[in-house]
């Protein structure tokens, strides 16, 4: 129960941050990515605001043996920069540049963004499912995560 409440609060905070920062507006995202056009550098400020605060959280976490409501921290386990990582980043970047949507902002604006957001999210879920049924292997599941 406590876990769900914390997760709900974190999701709400995340969504409000996306809304306030302007990330939910694809035109603004594309204006950031279009360095050679009428460049809007705002999204660099989103990263600049987010990374230090998140880093503080991870630093505080490093002093604790376990999170507040879970038996252990579940950090990503892979450390190698491999073809999957880079190939996935290439595909994601192209998709991001085509429409200006990445997963968070698309979901945050899903309930009020109209049919275009809904269409993007439906296609995104299909893309995730396509990965799940083709390239995902059971061994890829995070080991500690499945028992948290």
């Amino acid at each position: 129960m406590a876990r769900s409440l914390f997760a709900l609060a974190a999701g709400a905070l995340f969504g409000l941050g996306l809304l306030l920062s302007g990330m939910v507006n694809p035109a603004k995202v594309l204006a950031f990515l279009d360095v050679s056009g009428a460049w809007d550098p705002s999204l660099a400020f989103v990263m600049g605001g987010a990374i230090p605060v998140a880093a503080l959280g991870f630093r505080l976490g490093a002093r604790r043996a376990a999170p507040l409501c879970a038996p252990r921290f579940s950090p990503p386990t892979r450390t190698v920069i491999d073809a999957k990582l880079i190939g996935g980043a290439v595909l994601f970047g192209v998709g991001w540049g085509l429409a200006g949507f990445c997963p968070g902002p698309a979901l945050a604006s899903l309930c009020f963004g109209g049919w275009k957001v809904a269409l993007f999210v439906a296609a995104m879920l299909m893309g995730m499912y396509a990965f799940h049924v083709t390239l995902a292997r059971p061994g890829n599941a995070p080991p500690a995560a499945s028992r948290g």
């Binding site: 406590a2 876990r3 914390f6 997760a7 609060a9 974190a10 999701g11 709400a12 905070l13 995340f14 409000l16 941050g17 996306l18 809304l19 306030l20 920062s21 302007g22 990330m23 705002s42 999204l43 400020f45 989103v46 990263m47 600049g48 605001g49 987010a50 990374i51 230090p52 605060v53 998140a54 880093a55 503080l56 959280g57 991870f58 505080l60 976490g61 604790r64 376990a66 999170p67 507040l68 409501c69 879970a70 252990r72 921290f73 579940s74 948290g148």
Partner: peptide, 21 residues
């Protein structure tokens, strides 16, 4: 607005890490 929004996003990431890992 973008910096403050970013800080909220970072705060959400910190909260999920510290509470649920």
């Amino acid at each position: 607005a973008s910096t403050v929004g970013g800080a909220l996003i970072g705060g959400a990431a910190a909260l999920l890490w510290l509470a649920l890992g």
